[in-house]
């Protein structure tokens, strides 16, 4: 298994390299630059700034320079927040975003899977329709609608929870719920479909034919099969949580890294955007690896291959 992990990680290096390359040249191809402010800077200052950040060198030199720094773990200085390096910003923001995303993912898994199984066991009955309806609702309502409503309802009117900010567990409730809702919906639908499929399979018929109690039929012979598609969805889910966190972090005023994406891209803060891309790409790679490991653990037909 260790060999498998190492091989997979090694296989991810070219992927990340290509991602970095595409992202680097794409952001550089965008018009404008980090120092194009509304009031143009004095040409001399501009020149100095460009020289300080190596922007006056040919693009390929900058690319090689960036790659070199990246290999040493150096994300470079932020262009717009000039007192901080990108690494400094991540040191503060990343733990917050990871906490937020991790909690949301866990919540989504627990609630979504439970609802999905419940619906499947009560297929075409009231509870099933309710879950399907809620799930469709969860998928269709944008989180930037949910966020202000929750914030207003529980934060402002009822005053039960803080309407924004970050720090205590109470601060986490609303953002985590907001972020988890669409994932709950998707996971519930996935689980429902997979459970229904599993309940119809021949080996469940065998288990029933051998008089195993319903609990055993469901827990042992259905759920494990039903959880497989959910496991493979975790990769995309992680990516979706990162995207979703842009909105949630903005509305609830959370100091995570999601915001840097939009701000960095709009301000042409090259290093900040590149840093975010790299971090997310690494996350996706690690998540996909974890998904594969979990899958192989759950399904003996899958071996650690490739």
């Amino acid at each position: 298994m260790l060999g498998f992990v190492l091989r997979r990680l090694a296989g991810a290096i070219p992927t990340i390299f290509i991602v970095v390359t595409i992202a680097f040249f794409m952001i550089r191809a965008a018009p404008g630059g980090p120092f194009d402010l509304e009031r143009p800077l004095d040409p001399l200052i501009m020149q100095n700034l460009n020289a300080a950040f190596h922007l006056d060198e040919p693009l390929w030199r900058q690319y090689l320079l960036y790659l070199g720094n990246l290999l040493q773990g150096d994300f470079g200085p932020s262009f717009t927040r000039r007192d901080f390096s990108v690494a400094d910003l991540f040191a503060v923001g990343l733990p917050v975003s990871v906490t937020l995303g991790g909690l949301a993912l866990s919540l989504a898994l627990v609630v979504g899977a439970s609802l999905g199984v419940l619906a499947a066991l009560r297929q075409n009955k009231g509870a099933d329709y309710a879950v399907v309806g809620i799930a469709t609702f969860g998928i269709t309502i944008p989180n930037f609608v949910v966020a202000p409503i929750l914030s207003l309802l529980f934060g402002v009117w009822m005053g039960w929870l803080p309407a924004g900010g970050w720090g205590t567990p109470a601060h986490m409730v609303l953002p985590v719920v907001t972020l988890a809702l669409p994932q709950i919906a998707i996971i519930a639908r996935l689980t429902r479909g997979a459970t229904i499929e599993a309940l119809r399979s021949n080996h469940v018929r065998t288990a029933r034919a051998y008089g195993l109690p319903t609990r055993v039929v469901v827990v042992t012979h259905t759920l494990r099969a039903a959880i497989l598609p959910v496991v493979s969805y975790l990769g995309p889910a992680a990516a979706a949580l990162l995207t979703g966190s842009v909105v949630v972090e903005t509305i609830f005023g959370i100091p995570g890294i999601g915001r840097y994406f939009v701000q960095g891209a709009l301000a042409r803060d090259y290093t900040l955007v590149m840093g975010t891309v790299v971090v997310i790409a690494i996350f996706v790679v690690i998540f996909n690896l974890l998904v594969d490991l979990a899958y192989a653990l759950l399904d003996p037909r899958v071996r650690y291959e490739r």
Partner: peptide, 10 residues
């Protein structure tokens, strides 16, 4: 169906 009558996961 001998191929599918047993649970593949156990």
């Amino acid at each position: 169906e001998p191929m599918t009558s047993l649970d593949p996961l156990y």
